[in-house]
Design a protein around this nucleic acid. Sequence first.
DNA 1: CCGCTATACCTCGATGCCGAGGTATCGTCT
DNA 2: AGACGATACCTCGGCATCGAGGTATAGCGG
Lengths: 185, 185
Amino acid sequence: MLKLAILGFLRDRPMHGYELRRHLAALTGHIRPLSDGTLYPAIKRLEADGLLVRETEPGSTAAPRHTLHLTPAGVTALLERLRTPEQLDISDENRWFTVLAFLRHLDDPAGQAAVLRRRLAFLEEPASFFYDEAGPLDAERITDPFRSGILLIARATSRAELAWLHDTIAALDASDGQDVTATSG
Amino acid sequence: MLKLAILGFLRDRPMHGYELRRHLAALTGHIRPLSDGTLYPAIKRLEADGLLVRETEPGSTAAPRHTLHLTPAGVTALLERLRTPEQLDISDENRWFTVLAFLRHLDDPAGQAAVLRRRLAFLEEPASFFYDEAGPLDAERITDPFRSGILLIARATSRAELAWLHDTIAALDASDGQDVTATSG
DNA sequence: CCGCTATACCTCGATGCCGAGGTATCGTCT
DNA sequence: AGACGATACCTCGGCATCGAGGTATAGCGG
């Protein structure tokens, strides 16, 4: 997750750790704040994997700034992750939003549509939060106001996202067809 | 999180680990599947903390079943957790839904309303996912269709939840007033 | 020039989760 | 009788994260 977000931000432009931290805070920080005890080891792991390099700028500001650049391997890893996200990236809303935030980097309408279709399939499979001895509880059988609130909110989110997914997939399919004829004609 | 869910389910009725596992799978399993390598150590931690006890049923079915019961300390811990959730339980939707799923156990309309008000305050404070050099990006300035999708979905969720929160808080406030006059009169 | 804050980076112990593995029993199908 | 899957529980290594701590520089107010 963190890995995806770091690669995604660095794909836009090289930046140093502290700036990365600010961007990450803006993206998911209100949901789940990120400590730099998490960020810097993550950067080190990516560096050890050869996905990014640091270039030390001399006396720019304060401490020795390491400007972080993606390597070609880093770009490949990002695109691979975006093209074939793991199931948790599809099902968990926080992770899914991170995928969406950088899906534009996957510069391929068909590939983007394929990822959206995976989310679509996940949202369309029936899921129930609660059940008792008699089986799954549908909305009508739930008397607890808090639990019916969960269902209400989940359903509103689902409706909005399904509509958006259908629209966006249609647009991507259309633009893909256009591009193919444009480049081939 | 897991801790809260275990305590919450056991508050309904004692059950053994495997049954707990099924309930947990129904509650959050479609989002994030739970391995029993996570569940059983969590049960052990709760037992070590004195929040639950196991009672071994003799030759009921297969392996030695341990039926899990909340202790008075476990009930207290559950109520305390529900009454004063940490900020992450408020901000993270997955955690928040877990709080909601068991908030009914906090048998106190005023306390329940107070928790809902914390979520309300969180949702009402302005948050932006993205920003550039010129500051936070509002919806109009975002051209990336995937990022505008995030905002669209987040806003739909937020609208639905805010409406539900207002309604439910009003209902709780009303029932609280009624209860007070009923018990005092 | 001292203290304070912001910038910028790092380490380390504790914790919690995951996945892969293992054990054992019971019921059912063949 | 043997194979198999479901039930039921457990252990352990590995890893990501958190939080608390530390280091160092630059700039600003008093």
